Simulated scan of single mutants.
Amino acid sequence: MFISFYNSPLGVLRIMVKESYVTEIHFCTDDELKDSMVTTGFHPLLQQCTEQLIEYFQGARRIFEFPVHQSGTPFQQSVWGELTGIPFGKTISYMNLARKLGDPKVIRAAAATNGRNKIAIVVPCHRVIGSNREMVGYAGGIWRKKWLLQHEQKIANGVQTLF
């Protein structure tokens, strides 16, 4: 396993690569930084992932082009697959996510799986919001979710200024 850290505009992201996949992109807490800010050698995917995250935050990238993998049940895999299909700059509700999975009754399970996503930003769980358009549930913190959605809206719709 290879680990590196990227100091993003939203805080430090820990990036993990195992074999030929990015397996984690995680917003670190202060305690995690104190305990584990150790990089573990070079892997080309660490560099590729970091470069693409930088481009995303600069507004130059909407789609990530490196392999990702996270372990999970077939249901979890289907939820994460649906997340990757949410277009940049768009949102869907948890109910819409459940419907896309074929059963509105799985809304709680879909929401729980969304919360277990280990590949922040790239598997865009931040694009799922409450049915009432409220910002609910984000492991990285609601303020980050709001920032990410506003960032994507600005890029997708063009930044407008008054003067």
Rank of each mutant, 00 (worst) to 15 (best):
R14N: 05
A120Y: 15
N157Q: 09
P9T: 05
L33T: 06
N132Q: 15
V128D: 03
I3A: 09
R62P: 01
G137H: 07
Q47G: 02
N7D: 12
F27D: 04
K154C: 01
I142W: 15
M95D: 13
F57V: 04
N7P: 08
K90S: 11
L162E: 08
Q160S: 12
T113A: 15
K146G: 13
V12Q: 01
F57T: 00
E134Y: 09
L46C: 06
V17D: 09
G85T: 13
P87M: 13
K146E: 14
A60Y: 08
V128W: 13
V79H: 14
G59I: 04
S4P: 02
V68E: 04
K154N: 02
Y21T: 04
F64G: 01
S8T: 08
R133C: 07
E19Y: 00
T50K: 07
V22I: 10
G89E: 09
G158Q: 07
R116P: 00
S78I: 02
I121F: 09
G115W: 05
C49A: 15
G140L: 15
V128C: 08
E51C: 09
P104W: 14
K100T: 01
H126D: 03
T29K: 11
T50E: 07
Y56I: 04
A139E: 11
Y56R: 02
V136T: 08
S36I: 05
C125P: 03
P67G: 01
L148T: 14
A111T: 07
Y94K: 09
E32G: 04
G137V: 08
L13E: 06
Q150T: 12
Y6Q: 03
H69N: 04
P124R: 10
K118W: 05
A120G: 08
C28R: 11
P9R: 08
M1Y: 14
I121G: 04
F163L: 10
I129Q: 03
A120L: 14
E19G: 07
A109K: 09
K154P: 03
R99M: 13
L148I: 15
L53V: 00
F57M: 02
N132K: 15
G141P: 12
F163P: 15
R14T: 02
G11S: 01
H26K: 13
E19K: 15
T84N: 02
Y94T: 04
A110K: 06
L148Q: 13
K34A: 14
A139Q: 10
P124M: 05
T91R: 10
L33C: 13
V79W: 10
L97A: 01
K18W: 07
V123R: 00
R108H: 12
S8K: 04
E19F: 04
T50S: 03
V68S: 02
Q47H: 04
R144H: 13
N96R: 15
K145A: 06
P74Y: 10
L162F: 15
G72L: 12
R99N: 08
E32W: 07
M95E: 13
A112I: 05
K145T: 01
A120F: 15
S20K: 10
P87F: 03
N157M: 05
M1P: 07
H126L: 08
L101H: 11
R108D: 09
L83Y: 03
I92E: 05
M135Q: 14
V159P: 00
